[in-house]
Design a protein around this nucleic acid. Structure first.
Lengths: 316, 316
DNA sequence: GGCATAATATAACCTGATGCTATGCAATTG
DNA sequence: CAATTGCATAGCATCAGGTTATATTATGCC
């Protein structure tokens, strides 16, 4: 005997509310509707669901048994409803985000932490990658968002690119570095210190090569290479090495007072940090929420940076 | 967002079967039906349930989450279906049956055991009572069936009474009783033995009084009274007491070879054992099954009794 | 690449379930 | 016994959801 889940829910409502009228009210339907439907159900079953001729309506054994299943269905249905509402509201779901390692670890991780605070049930699946693969993965749909620097001219086809921060690199060293307090450094001042090189496939590495070429340092000593920002920072703090870092990354670490930037102008990097997202496909609610969060956080960050620069607390 | 349980079941079916066509087949519906319904659901949600433009159909996060609830609903619905089938088939449910203590314990209990064997999920709620209250309780609906002896003429109003066994009482004693092997007993033979009396409110007690009056025994010694059949039997077995018992009760105990009947004619009891059931109200399936079981068992019993008598294995 | 194949989406139609209001009828209560 | 409350029934309207036929779209193979 095939039974309609809706009928079972109606039955459960009537049993639980203690009558057709309150039961109908609880379901937002009319009393005759329930009466007819349950009468039809009784006819189908060939068995009464309620004791006949009694007026606080009392369910039969069968009625009680079926009502129990109706409750399960009502519960599951309600669960589905709230799940859907949460999902649509972006309170649940997964976000697959990737970016260049240094930015992800030094900048985005903090923003993710803030997002998790407000949306603990959104799962963030983070991974690392560089521009080419990021664009491909966003385009193919295996990635929801990507954060990476791109040359201003080279706006990628088929995906959207939203600039969020001007690219600017600085030469970083530990706070107590011999060069840290010197003003208007010369090229020869930095020539003698060892360098920490980013992974060779990273854009930063290209920037480093460009800078070294610019300051005409040929035989650079590379003391460490290939590490994450965490490893780089640890090595920087414990030595007199220099490295190249995005200014924003250094800015995010300003609270720790461990690293600083050298007072030397280096060539402007023709690269702007931005968010890559699918151009055609609409974002899932959780992705949209996360996207917005990242975007506003970066706006705040950009504002902080320019504010800090105006106050000369930090030098260019 | 209110969701229709049926839609969730459809979704679950499509997800589990791996496509609209097999999903529709599993539900016994057509493919366009599912397609349209799920498309409408997606429109309501504003979110896709399946990844677009992929074929093997793969559910989205939301689709998978809702399908999980759909599975719960399908499960509960199926559970309700089998529950209903079992109930209608009389394989489940409760039977409220009562009867006079001696018959219930000595005769009906055995039949209940046999019934439980075949219907382990039917709950038997047994109680004790005598004719008046039994009839009242069956009529009021607080009892499904009652088994008790009634005088042939006094067919009760408003309830059905189905005769199942001719009433006939005998005087019972232990197998090795001094009178057990004697033939054609006289009244004076039994006058000296103590008696076990049934509860004073039982019909058997009236029968006992009638018999004693018949055989003109006035100053009867009652050595024990008010006990259940089990207690009576124990006392009978351990003494030379006599008592009055329905022949069928004694017959049911014949295997144990503990008790026997005296070879003495006593007045025929104007009382037939029968099943009392509601006249108007239809019986619930489990009750109907139990009723039939009892009835056929009694037919068998009646047959056995007459067969045994013909073979003279037992004397009248 | 393009065709063959298989599965899904759409169209058009129709039936029946289910919503409503109005009202009759039965059970409970004072 | 009358009043009240609540369930059952009737009649009507609507639309969700079933069908078949057909267009459209992925996918796999040559």
């Amino acid at each position: 005997m095939q039974l309609d889940p809706n009928h079972l829910v109606m039955l459960a409502s009537v049993v639980d509310e203690g009558g057709l009228t309150p039961g109908a009210h609880a379901l937002g339907k009319s009393q005759p509707s329930l009466s007819r439907t349950l009468a039809a159900l009784e006819a189908r079953l060939g068995q009464p669901l309620f004791e006949k001729g009694r007026r606080p309506l009392v369910p039969t054994e069968l009625g009680a048994a079926l009502a129990a299943q109706g409750r399960v269905i009502r519960q599951a249905s309600g669960e589905a409803s709230t799940q859907a509402d949460l999902y649509i509201g972006g309170k649940t779901g997964a976000v697959r985000v990737a970016g260049t390692p240094v930015f992800m670890d030094a900048v985005i991780a903090t923003m993710i932490a803030g997002f998790q605070q407000a949306h603990p049930n959104v799962r963030i699946d983070q991974s690392y990658g560089y521009a080419e693969t990021l664009i491909r993965d966003v385009d193919s749909g295996s990635l929801d968002l990507a954060i990476c620097p791109l040359p201003p001219g080279e706006l990628p086809d088929r995906v959207a690119f939203e600039e969020i921060l001007q690219g600017r690199n600085v030469i970083a060293c530990r706070m107590g570095h011999p060069l840290a307090r010197k003003r208007a450094l010369k090229l020869e001042d930095i020539a003698h210190y060892p360098w920490i090189a980013p992974p060779t496939n990273s854009p930063l590495y290209q920037d480093l090569r460009a800078i070294l070429q610019e300051i005409e340092v040929e035989d650079v000593k590379v003391s460490f290479s290939g590490g994450s920002i965490s490893a780089v920072r640890t090595v920087l703090e414990g030595s007199d090495s220099l490295t190249i870092l995005p200014y924003s990354v250094l800015f995010m670490m300003r609270q720790q007072k461990a690293l600083t930037a050298l007072d030397i102008r280096i060539h402007h990097v023709p690269r702007n940090l931005g968010i890559i997202s699918p151009a055609d496909r609409p974002e899932r609610p959780a992705v949209r929420r996360f996207h917005r969060h990242i975007a506003t956080e970066f706006k705040t960050l950009a504002h902080s940076i320019s504010h800090a620069q105006q106050n000369s607390l930090w030098r260019a």
